[in-house]
């Protein structure tokens, strides 16, 4: 449904991160193209290759055979070259891919975590391909099989640098399937996940993801999406139904939790029925946690105590510690059973 205005809005929101990701892939494609052009053996590349690389101005003026001896670096082993060519093709497919690459739809009742993991692993083929090409340029690619290196690569195997260049994802799903815990493992590097929530959702489904370094946004329109895209670090956002809470947690806004959270809409209606297996009381608790986090220190401590009379949370020590503990507690309360 390309005409769905919410999808358009979402894709517009992640346009800059897509550009950033794709630019890195494109730059790599061109590097690999250069490597291939200069490491084919002269007999394989032939005068035609030299002629093409020199352009028409050279025709009749430059002796291609002589020039070719200057262009070619030590030719690479054909088997290794074939691997690099395969890597080149994978990177080119990703570079040429349209926005569908960055969009997934979770079927009703399916696991959000599994869908995201699957797509990221597919995109991980690009990183795997770049690793193969990188090894070739570094001279460390052996001539054995690289099949597995060119296979999908799960997010858990991405390096820190790769996570920093992670592609953004727009994920369409039913509110009932939105289990924030599913996303915890992906909240690293520069991962940006934007959820389009259909149907009913709990009032603050993303609240459990609030940690000091993660940008978290629930919104009904484009509010906050610019900051979401620009945030340097992991970020998650959801376009939620009207009756859900709308808030921004922006790590750049200060060391105190309450400075970082801005709640600009709290639901007027109390949750009245369970959504996606979460009971009414669980939903109320989720909302209260959010409201508590956004409040000034004294009140916050009080209401957190109200909402969760768990002794472990009793805030003490320096503020940053409190924040971390609070975050840890929230995570522990979140629905984590779907992580896998």
């Amino acid at each position: 449904m390309p005409s769905d205005p919410r999808i358009e809005l979402a894709l517009r929101a992640v346009a800059a991160p897509i550009d950033r990701y794709r630019s890195a892939v494109v730059t790599t494609v061109e590097e690999v193209r250069g490597y291939l052009a200069s490491h084919r053996s002269p007999t394989e590349s032939g005068d035609g290759n030299t002629a093409a690389r020199l352009g028409a101005f050279a025709a009749g003026r430059i002796d291609y055979a002589r020039f070719a001896t200057l262009l070619t670096e030590a030719p690479d082993d054909p088997e290794r070259l074939r691997k690099v060519e395969k890597a080149f093709d994978i990177l080119r497919v990703i570079a040429a891919g349209d926005e569908d690459l960055f969009k997934i739809k979770v079927k009703g009742g399916a696991r959000l975590g599994a869908a995201v993991a699957k797509r990221l692993a597919e995109m991980g083929r690009g990183f795997a391909a770049a690793r193969v090409a990188g090894m070739a340029t570094a001279g460390s690619l052996n001539s054995g099989s690289a099949e597995e290196l060119l296979a999908p690569m799960a997010f858990e195997r991405w390096s820190a640098a790769e996570r920093r260049l992670a592609p953004p994802l727009v994920v369409e799903l039913e509110g009932a399937d939105l289990h924030a815990g599913d996303l915890v493992e992906f909240m690293d590097g520069n991962v940006k996940i934007l959820l389009l929530v259909n149907g009913e959702s709990t009032p603050a489904p993303l609240a459990p993801l609030i940690t000091p370094g993660t940008f978290v946004l629930q919104t009904g329109d484009d509010t906050g999406l610019g900051r979401f895209a620009e945030h340097e670090g992991p970020a998650v956002a959801a376009l939620v139904p009207e009756d859900a809470a709308r808030f921004i947690h922006d790590p750049a806004r200060g060391a105190n939790l309450w400075d970082r959270i801005e709640i600009y809409h709290a639901p007027e209606k109390e949750p009245r029925r369970s959504v996606g297996g979460r009971s009414v009381s669980q939903q109320k608790q989720e909302l209260q946690q959010l409201l508590a986090m956004g409040k000034a220190p004294v009140e916050a401590a009080a209401s957190v105590a109200d909402a969760a009379p768990v002794t472990a949370v009793a805030p003490s020590g320096p503020v940053s510690n409190q924040v971390d503990k609070l975050a840890a507690w929230l995570l522990s309360q979140a629905d984590l059973e779907n992580i896998g």
Partner: peptide, 8 residues
């Protein structure tokens, strides 16, 4: 355009 080649 930062290259991916050495990212891994």
């Amino acid at each position: 355009g930062c290259s991916l080649l050495s990212c891994g």
